[in-house]
Structure formats: structure tokens, C-alpha cells
Design a binder for these strands. Structure first.
Lengths: 326, 326
DNA sequence: ACCGATCCCGGGAACGGTCTCTATAAAATA
DNA sequence: TATTTTATAGAGACCGTTCCCGGGATCGGT
């Protein structure tokens, strides 16, 4: 339209100096009139990057991860990045497929929280081979040398267990997750070590390995109820398991917290409104998301140092872990 | 490596017929040895599409939308598409920004559920102008001529209200959402019409317009408690509001369901485990997601007809709406 | 022996930008 | 006045594909 070359137009629209002020003005004007916007795909091809960061999480319906996504998106959008989210559905094979998709989409970096099924990490090598920046959060892969963001699982589980002990409980059961998961393992270790410190035995019959779908909570609850020595406290690795257990306990005439104290994990909103209100552990997964995104962006910008960040969690005490009254 | 042109390589690797079977074999072999994968970005530029579908929803932490995302991703991935998710955070301006991002990213289509703040729809015109396929779901925009997927909000709210009436309730309060939202409006209308059908008055003091964050439920509950004529049932537009209300009612010595029956919306897992178990309305948001994705894919494939789909919901009766005992 | 059809394959444009290199005129300097 | 610098703009390569078009070789038929 202006009879000038595309090179000049390109210069005029970018911050380049090599262009006459008047021609630049004319170009800008025409561009606005035509509602011109540069083609992102062409740019991607030229610059060899997409301004997309990929995220692989187990499930969006898990509120913990939903909040983390919020944190990631906040930081990413602020920096001009889009976010592509994949769900592994707790399956190792779809996790692998997700990875392939993201690599094929040429994302500039990936944030991952591994599925509960994943016990090997070979498929993540594809990222390292291609030099794609990657950050693991929460459910990390310990065998891989990458940046990572975790919560103080061990310490907070230790603290939670000690809290139960301080309330006069000495038969403390735990609903743990699958032990191949980093978080489950460390939480369990915190629980075990707290018992040890207070000279309490670690009893097999008090240890329940549930999956994350809480599909068998009712059966597990009955197991506990029928034990010759019934526990006087349960530390559940997530709130929904705790709440469902509480429901079944109450159905059997077992009082909370008088007979059994309950402690959850995640501090969902609902904790405040169940009967009795559920003590729980507040994990700020939103912050987990933001720091993971920050680490990743730093790597994308060129930093090659591996960083490990810790996000502190907090014990929130409510009535479900009140002192023992006999 | 094989001394042949890139054209031939391209033909060999695609389903083209114009290539010797033997050379094709050699090409495929070398390709595998080199771990070759076509550059998606270059392909995007050439084909003028990205195989990405964009999604704009209010919040991922809202379980309803988290499930819908699951449905969308399932269908999309099956068809070879990636999904780019944006959250509007219930804000009309970030919704607009999300739209800009998705357009800039050249997504092949968009699935939208509008924010509760959105009362005008001009910013969606950008999609129609560019001929980008779009499907609205659940929270649709009535003024825009597009494909859409909704639930039978009116009918199910009518049915729920009649259920309460059948249980002997005649002072039924409602916790409604913002009325500029399609879903809230229709649910409210169903409630109102059911009352009318049974010759019950529609009382202003029984109508609560909460936002979706349930930030003021405690205050609203007290309002209801202090009314000269206290309601004997509450129909809450989401389960969390219902559960929190139940908690406050019980704190005031009000029995559920004897004094006040409670009916929720969404049928969250937690409904089964609160005291008493909460009757609710099951919206299969996963199906909402899958059908929305199917409609969109059909449009991307070239279909120009606007389709409107309905996904049926279901009343799930539990103890919180048991019959009135005086 | 000639010709048309068929089979393969290579050349090169195109997608929409950026960027390097070069060209030209004007201005500044020797 | 001759020469160098400066300001501005254009030409064209490049990113990695697809695909259209044309051309050479082989083959079969007359």
C-alpha cells in the first residue's frame, strides 16, 4: 500500500532505529487501519520458540492441582506465555503421551507433577535430551537432576503426628498414599519418625495404603473399627479420605474427637463445615505453582543452574483433633 | 543422506503414492534412525492451523469446570488436538485478554463458558469476524448466534423445587447466583414457576443472590434465621453454599431436615459424607465438555450449521430433603 | 521406430515474518 | 572538489514443511 518493502515495514513496527520517523508513522497508521497483527506462527518458526509452557498434572479435578494451575498461569501470562495443560489421569502411559504431545507442540518448557503410577522416569529423558527446561513440583522425580519445588512433607507430617500425640493419642493410624510417590513416602516417614521419637510402635495394622481416588475408604474404615486395639487417631493423607472416614466412624457410633481424633491434609474449604470441623494441613499449592513457573521462566531465559525450592505448609487445628476425654 | 530431494522425503513420509516403494522404505528407515519428527510449527505455518483448541472458563478450582475440562481434553486428544486453557477468574476483562491470547496463538477453535461478570458480548465478535469456530457451554451468551451446549437448568430447578414441595415444604428459600448469568436466570425461573404452579408466593426475603465464591453465606444464613417467618427449605445453587449453610443452621440448633430441608446443586462427592447427606442435582459436566468438544470439532472440520445440545441432569435424593416431621 | 502414458523424482514457490547485507543519496568532512 | 560518513531503504536468505509443476526414464502399443 505504501510502496515500500516488507523489510521496512518490519523495522517500522519493531523498535528498530534504521527507519525514517515519518515513514514509521505512516506504517503504523496503515497497520492500525488494517487491524494488522503479526502472525505468531511465522514468528514461532523464525525464532524457534512458541511462548507456550506445558504442564502435566495428574488431574484437574484434584483441587490441589487446580490451584497450582492457577498459580502457574498467573506467572506465565504475566510473562507473555500461554499454558498448555495435560492430565495424566494418574496413568504412566498417558503421562508419556502427554509428554510427546508437548514436545511435538514445541513448548518452551514443561512443569510436571508425576502420576501416582509412575515408578520409572525414562520417559522424561526425552526432555533433557532436547534441552527443554523442566521443573518438577510436589510429586517430583528424585532420580532426575532437575529444578524442583516441594513442600516440607516430612516436617509437617512429623508436626501433625506430634500434635496428635500431644492430644493424648498413642494409637495413631495413617492413611498413606502409594509409597512410590515422593510426597507419600516423605509424609509417611515424618509420621513414622514422630512415633519413634515418642517411643510409640509403628504397627502394620495401622497403616493403610489407599490410592488417590479414595475408592476403598469404607472397607478400610471397617478394618480399623474391627481391630482388637482400635486406633484413637487417624492421620489421613487427604481431606476427602478423612471426611469419608469420619462419616463411617460416626455411623458406627464412634465419636470424633472423643474416641478417635482425625487429621486431614490439604485444608480444603469444606474442612470448616463438616462435623466436627476437620483439622488439616494447609498446603499452599497456588504458591507451589507460582514458584514452579518462576523457576521455569528463569531456565527458559537461559539460566542453567538447578534450583530446589521449599514451600512451607501449616498445621490448622480445629475440633476434630481436640484433646482426649475419657 | 540418501541423495534425494526433500520433496521425495516429504512424499515418502506422508501417505503419498508418488514414490517408489523401495525408496520409501529407505527414507522411513533413515528417519527412524535419526529420530526424525516433523516440525509442527513449520507445519502450522504451512497449513494455517495449529491443532490447538482454546478453552476459556471461569475457574479450574471450580470442580464443575475441572470435570468439563476433562471431557474436552478427552475428545480433543483423541482427535489429535491439544488444549489451551485460560481462566477468566470470573472477570470480564481478563476474559477479554484470554480471548486475545487465544486468537494470537491461532487456535483452531474456542470453547467458552462466560464469567459471571460478563453482561455484554462485544468482545466475542472478534471470533466471529475471523471465522473462528466457537462453542459456548453451560454459561452461554444468549445474544450470540453460535453453537452451544447447556443443561436443562429450568426443568431440573423446577423438579427440585417440586420435590421440596412434595416433602411438605411451602416456605422455600433460594440461594441464586447472579441473574445476568444464563444458568442462574433459568434455574431461578424454574424455581419461581414451580412455586407458582403450586400457588406458593414468591417472596423477596427468601431470595438470596450470592456470588460464586460463597463469601457471605454466613451472613445470609443469619438473615434467613432471623426472618419472622423462617423458611422450611433452602434450594442452594451450589453444594458448597448448601453445606456451609447447613453448618450454620446446625450451630443455631436448627435441625436438618426436620426444621429446614436442604437441596444443593452439582452433586459433589462430599454430599454423601456430610451430616445429613445432602440431596443435590447431578450435572454431568464431563458430558457437557465432551459434547462441546464434539460440536467444535465438527465445526473445525467445516460444518457451518449451528447446533444446540442439551445434557440432562438428575435429582439425587438423600436425607437432607427427607419428609417433614413436626 | 515412434509416441503416449505411467512412474518417480527434483525444483522451487509458498506460508509470514526477521534479519543481514548491500545500495543509494544526502550530508559531512578533508 | 573529492571522499568518507550517515541515514534510510530494498533484496533476499532463512525457519521447515507441503505441494504444484515439470521433466526424465521406462514401458507398452502400434
Amino acid at each position: 500500500m505504501l510502496g515500500i518493502s516488507k523489510s521496512t515495514v518490519s523495522r517500522a513496527l519493531s523498535e528498530h532505529t534504521d527507519v525514517n520517523a515519518e515513514t514509521r508513522q505512516r506504517v503504523i497508521e496503515v497497520a492500525r487501519k488494517l487491524n494488522y497483527a503479526p502472525n505468531t506462527i511465522a514468528l514461532n518458526l523464525k525464532q524457534q520458540r512458541t511462548n507456550i509452557i506445558g504442564v502435566i498434572i495428574p488431574e484437574t479435578v484434584n483441587r490441589f492441582f487446580a490451584k497450582a494451575i492457577g498459580g502457574i498461569q498467573r506467572i506465565a501470562n504475566l510473562a507473555g506465555y500461554n499454558v498448555m495443560i495435560c492430565q495424566s489421569d494418574e496413568s504412566s502411559t498417558t503421562e508419556k503421551n502427554n509428554l510427546q504431545s508437548l514436545i511435538a507442540a514445541h513448548v518452551d518448557g514443561v512443569i510436571i507433577s508425576v502420576s501416582s503410577e509412575t515408578d520409572h522416569t525414562d520417559h522424561f529423558d526425552a526432555l533433557l535430551q532436547r534441552n527443554i527446561p523442566v521443573v518438577f513440583f510436589d510429586r517430583i522425580s528424585e532420580s532426575l537432576q532437575t529444578s524442583q519445588v516441594v513442600t516440607d512433607n516430612y516436617e509437617i507430617a512429623f508436626e501433625g503426628t506430634e500434635h496428635l500425640i500431644a492430644q493424648g493419642r498413642n494409637k495413631i493410624a495413617i492413611v498413606a498414599g502409594p509409597l512410590n510417590l515422593y510426597v507419600s513416602k516423605h509424609r509417611f516417614q515424618g509420621y513414622a519418625d514422630a512415633l519413634k521419637k515418642h517411643n510409640l510402635p509403628l504397627r502394620d495394622e495401622y497403616i493403610i495404603h489407599s490410592n488417590f481416588h479414595n475408592s476403598d475408604i469404607e472397607a478400610y474404615t471397617k478394618q480399623l473399627i474391627n481391630l482388637p486395639e482400635r486406633p484413637d487417631a487417624v492421620f489421613a493423607i487427604n481431606d476427602y479420605a478423612a471426611i469419608e472416614m469420619m462419616y463411617h466412624f460416626k455411623k458406627h457410633g464412634i465419636r470424633i474427637p472423643e474416641d478417635i481424633a482425625m487429621l486431614g491434609f490439604n485444608n480444603e474449604n469444606i474442612c470448616k463445615f463438616v462435623e466436627p470441623p476437620l483439622s488439616s494441613i494447609e498446603l499452599s499449592s497456588y504458591d507451589l505453582g507460582t514458584t514452579a513457573a518462576e523457576l521455569l521462566l528463569r531456565q527458559i531465559k537461559g539460566s542453567r543452574e538447578l534450583e530446589k525450592k521449599l514451600v512451607k505448609s501449616k498445621l490448622v487445628i480445629r475440633e476434630s483433633t481436640a484433646g482426649k476425654k475419657s
